[in-house]
Write a protein that binds this DNA or RNA. Structure first.
Lengths: 236, 236, 236, 236
DNA sequence: GATGAATGAGATTTCATTCAT
DNA sequence: TATGAATGAAATCTCATTCAT
């Protein structure tokens, strides 16, 4: 159940937090891999390449990853790569589409997050799933967040996915009445920033704590910071 | 009179005749600003290059930045660049040293952050200064956080600087008793993650909100999430 | 209920949050012919490059030779060169391996060189073969002798090959009892010096005499100087 | 006392052994340093540069030596270097002139070298002085012998100096009647080759033996090989 | 479908030489 | 005289992409 919003600032602006940075270019899109009907072998190769891409992007970052690395990781050849993708960015695009789906689904599934224990559970579940998604698609999300994407189309996918999540969280925050509406965009920005980079820290091994503790802590902090959960008793 | 020697194994130093000559190479090519005492003109050029580096890194990101871009931005020549730095990484190192200083100083200046209004002021002041530092040294901090740094030395500078801040904030959090000690590492990680990425969002224009609102919101969120500031009354 | 902790020294792993991520880089760029299984075409190109290298090194000398020259001589592209060798030195290394083999074989084949006519024949045959080897691998031998090699591994190959020949000749000299043992190292040094530089002179066209005369003369001089062959009768 | 030459082959060809290799270029000569009258300070700087050149050329070889190395070794600046020499080759030229003088003087001083003890003494004395000259001017001689000189003028200086010595030694060999006239050019070539490279070996530390032994051995070998000194008695 | 080989545009780096003070 | 600073031509090296089999 959603309570009426006290003030009237337009929620349409909430996603301003995830807009792409001012850019000025325009890369041409790719060519192959589109209309091709793949047989079993082809599908296997495609999968190998996608997985390899994810692994190599994770290790080196999208920009620094060389097609050669990917091809080697997939145990195939340069020629084959360009049979499936028109270029490196095209591979990123394919991964980005998957990732965007996941994130959009995730967004849609976020239920109300009240200041109480039930809200906490909902939040925790969301964070857990976000972390899982990051563990797989981290490199793509990083590419979006670190602004490594040249292609407009790919970039837009990211903006849209993050807007979906951001809008949803904004809605939940609004319901919890914890943040003044004026700061909504900033709050959403801060929350998404923490989510993304914290996940990166965890996925990359920079932040190492045992999984449950880490998740508990994150949940607590977010719950208190953004959703009005009460601070520990002063005696605490 | 010489007696004939049996044709046995060759004397150990017969081959002394063909040993490689003793090398005495000296410094390998690439001798940057270190030993050189700079005069006014040199200092000016050095500064131009450092500033240009910061600007170009900010615009393109460290990895994608070309020495050529930097040189053009500094209105000097390729040759000149290599007179002051042995390569792009060396320039980053120079900037990193400065940045590390700033951050370390910043860390030292963080006073106690209680859950009350005084604590909030202290926190806000810290965040404000952090944002300022980020506005200048963002590219360096990004390079650290996005793990774009190959050089061990530079990397370590970053780790140290962030450890300094993180430790200090951990101390302040402990004083405020808001987070359970078990989750301290994770909490610090989350806080730093948010700080860095939020600052990036602001500095890059991804997050746009007017400065005061943005700062207020960030302060509120952090104060509540990490330092035990009370949630707004349910009446909101 | 949590008791307040005194604000003491920070726990040892608070900074665990900021450690650099574990790197797993793999092979640095520059992966030449080693691991690659070459097919017919590849082997042909490799051969073309090796031959071109030998030719260009011969013409210009190792140090002054440009990769560009070699590539042009092999009628291929820059990129292709670096597909087979990681740099000029790597090409030299490949040639050096071949050359070292030749020289070692040559060394092993040197039979006893007495002061008599049979010894002279043996010596002449050795010199002839050495000259032949020099005609092909001269540039490599020069690079060794003129100390143009930076790479330790390549250098060692040369030292070893020359030691092999030097030791063998030392043995033959000892058998002939023509030189006092104390001077053996110096004698071997002198002989190798003459061999190498004379061959260079011949191969480069600096010394021009018809082949048989030249070989006869060299044989005579070495036979008398190092292996006890009698001087011409005073009537000469 | 010189005996009449038995056969009639033209001595004019003897120097064919030291001709420059077939070349096809034409470098422009230098500019400054010619007409300048130097005061005490200038003379000192000039000397420092010449000495530094010799040292650096010795360490790195002429080709690989950078003006920067020389300038640093001379504790002066780039600007100053070009005040005294029009370019690197010009410095080599200056050194070459000195060296050529030394060698020409040395050549003129070579007395008759018979097969007897007196001849041996003369030979030894010559070799000793040659080695001394090499110790100082080795880099220049190397540059000549290793064909590193681009400038025609400098090259010619070397050819002339070596021809002087070669011709003189040819004359002494002819007197000793040890080598058949047909092989004279080759013999001279071989002798000069050995001299030069052996000296390089000694000066560079490749050949290390104590000075007297080394000199004795070299003398013996040359005396026997080129000047008809008798081999050791067969009983030897 | 798949592959090894080849390419060349573009980035980095070096260094002899010139310039301004 | 002397110098630090600057330059740019030339060399090295990388890597996404295309080609031929």
């Amino acid at each position: 159940m959603r309570t009426a919003r006290p003030t009237g600032s337009p929620p349409a602006d909430a996603n301003a937090a995830y807009k792409s940075p001012p850019r000025a270019d325009g890369a041409p899109p790719g060519r192959p891999a589109q209309g091709r009907e793949l047989r079993a072998q082809g599908r296997r190769t495609l999968r190998r390449l996608l997985d390899a891409g994810l692994r190599v992007f994770a290790r080196r970052g999208y920009h620094a990853a060389r097609v050669d690395d990917i091809v080697r990781a997939a145990r195939t050849s340069h020629g084959t790569f360009y049979l499936y993708f028109s270029n490196k960015e095209d591979l990123l695009r394919a991964l980005a589409v998957d990732c965007a789906h996941q994130l959009t689904d995730l967004a849609a599934a976020v239920g109300p997050i009240g200041a109480d224990a039930a809200g906490r559970r909902e939040l925790r579940s969301f964070l857990d799933r976000f972390l899982d998604t990051y563990r797989r698609y981290g490199p793509v999300i990083r590419a979006w967040m670190e602004d490594q994407v040249g292609d407009r189309h790919v970039d837009r996918l990211g903006v849209r996915a993050f807007t979906a999540i951001g809008d949803r969280l904004a809605l939940r925050m609004r319901e919890s009445s914890a943040t003044p509406p004026a700061g909504e965009a900033a709050a959403v920005g801060a929350l998404m920033a923490m989510l993304e980079r914290f996940s990166y820290g965890v996925a990359s091994g920079r932040i190492d704590a045992d999984e449950p503790t880490m998740l508990e802590t994150l949940t607590t902090v977010v719950h208190r910071g953004f959703f009005g959960a009460p601070a520990p008793s002063i005696a605490g």
